[in-house]
Amino acid sequence: MSPGKTSVNIVNLGRVAYSNALQIQQRYIRQHFDSSSQTPNTILLCEHDPVYTTGIRRVSYPAEEEQRLRELGADFFRTNRGGLITFHGPGQLVCYPILNLGCFKKSVRWYVCELEKTVIKMCGKFGIKASTSVDTGIWIGNNKLCAIGIHCGRYITSHGLGLNCNTNMSWFHHIVPCGIIGKGVTSLSQELGRDVTIEEATPVLLQAFSEQFNFSLGNTEFLHSR
């Protein structure tokens, strides 16, 4: 580890149900709030079973809408992250940074901007030109590649980003992703014209993350939990 750099551990959960991932996030968050705990900053990586999630923005998702989406074979969760409805599922790399922003910069706006820059930098390593827009997330033209929705309490971050690698994009056809009308979604596989797996994308994203946030990668743990 480089002197003076914050160390961030990586925990790979593998494919995990969304409800389990929420519980694991909460466990790491509680450890940060426990003054007796020397909790390292951690990035949780995973892939979810099909699930639609909504954020805290004031848009109604009635029970009928929830039932319609569940009948497609997906789960449904209302969360405390920012943003509107999105989809997580197989082929999508989900990244949940549980970070103490006191180790970086105590600014939620800065943090979100750095997440955006991280994904743009990762895309550059794949030879893809990506950008931000007035709408949230990372875009390639009018198609969203990566959704970003975070929560931050007492400067401890949770939730994070969902990067489409080789996701079955038909799941997005049943919603207006992130509430943005008239725009589409894309994946690394679609943009590169070949199959890009989560396993291929993960080290590239982590390298971009460590460069953008100027941290050292610490221990890597595989914690497979359904």
Rank of each mutant, 00 (worst) to 15 (best):
L84E: 15
N41I: 13
L22A: 08
Y96C: 06
V59T: 13
R68W: 01
L45M: 03
R57E: 07
R57W: 02
Q25Y: 14
S35F: 13
K105G: 05
G102N: 13
S19W: 00
I56E: 02
I85E: 01
L69F: 03
I43P: 06
S107T: 05
T54A: 00
A74Q: 01
I10T: 13
C46H: 05
F77I: 05
N41A: 03
A21T: 10
R70H: 10
T79L: 04
C103M: 10
P50N: 08
L69C: 06
R27P: 02
N41M: 05
S7D: 03
L99G: 03
S35W: 13
Q38L: 08
G14D: 09
E66Q: 14
Y111R: 02
K106S: 12
I24W: 08
V16Y: 02
I56Q: 06
E64I: 13
S107W: 01
H88I: 00
S19C: 02
N20P: 00
L84D: 12
G102I: 04
L101H: 01
I43N: 06
L99M: 10
Y111G: 11
Y28L: 07
R81I: 08
Y28C: 01
L72A: 09
I85W: 14
H32A: 07
V108R: 11
I85D: 00
I98M: 06
N20Q: 14
C103S: 15
E65V: 13
Q26D: 12
S36M: 09
Q38W: 05
S35N: 15
T39L: 03
I98V: 15
I56L: 12
P62T: 07
L84R: 13
G55H: 14
E71C: 04
R78F: 07
N12I: 03
Q38T: 10
F33H: 13
F87H: 11
G82C: 09
A17R: 14
N12Y: 07
R15P: 12
F76N: 05
S36Q: 13
T53Q: 01
G83S: 11
I98W: 15
L93A: 05
C95V: 11
R81H: 15
Q67F: 04
Q23F: 01
P90Q: 04
T54Y: 10
G73Q: 05
R30V: 00
I43V: 14
L99V: 09
Q23W: 06
N9M: 04
S19K: 12
K106L: 05
N80I: 05
A63D: 10
F76E: 02
T53M: 10
F104K: 00
N9A: 12
P40G: 08
